[in-house]
């Protein structure tokens, strides 16, 4: 199944992904409503786009008291059903990655649904730092964390 693969080393922090996502959500350019966020680590010159990677544990689904989160069989995305969601926000707490958000305007939870299989962030990224590709296990998070960890330690020791 296709997954989002994010390659932080290619990211320039231009925020085109946030702009594209917020346009899908709201029809305006409103990064505060984006479901993908670019984390900027200035001193490490490291920029990491970050969103739900549709993990198999899906604690958001498990936690939802009204079963408002369903698995989209076509994409594997965990999708919030607006008409069922009561806005209790338990899913936003249950997610260990902080990628489920609460929309204060609609009083509903909101998360990445892979745009139904055609993610806008992927199209918008000018440096191909976000790909939508066939993958077994999304392992970019672990390997990226390891690399940042190593780089940070090297820098702390005064090297480059």
């Amino acid at each position: 199944m296709k997954q989002l693969r994010i390659i932080p080393d290619k990211c320039t922090s231009c925020l085109q992904c946030e702009l594209a996502c917020s346009f899908v959500q709201t029809g305006t350019f409103q990064p505060s409503r984006s479901l993908i966020r670019v984390y900027v680590f200035d001193e490490q010159a490291s920029y990491a786009p970050y969103t739900c990677f549709q993990c198999s544990e899906a604690w958001c689904m498990t936690a939802c008291p009204v079963n408002a989160i369903a698995l989209d069989p076509a994409t594997g995305a965990k999708v919030i059903m607006d008409n069922v969601c009561v806005g209790c926000a338990v899913c936003t707490i249950a997610c260990p990655y902080g990628t489920v958000f609460y929309n204060p305007d609609t009083h509903k939870a909101v998360k990445c649904d892979l745009c139904g299989g055609d993610p806008a962030c992927v199209k918008a990224c000018p440096t191909d730092a976000i790909e939508y590709v066939e993958m077994e296990q999304p392992d970019w998070l672990t390997s990226w964390a390891q690399r940042v960890d190593e780089r940070f330690h090297t820098m702390q020791e005064g090297g480059h």
């Binding site: 320039t12 010159a45 000018p126 480059h160």
Partner: peptide, 25 residues
């Protein structure tokens, strides 16, 4: 050079992020 960096919404990213390693600092 460590990386190039973009301003908001920039698809060019001409910004330079440089470092001064070791003794140079």
């Amino acid at each position: 050079l460590v990386s190039n960096k973009a301003c908001f919404s920039c698809t060019i990213a001409c910004g330079r992020v440089a470092t001064l390693p070791g003794d140079a600092a």
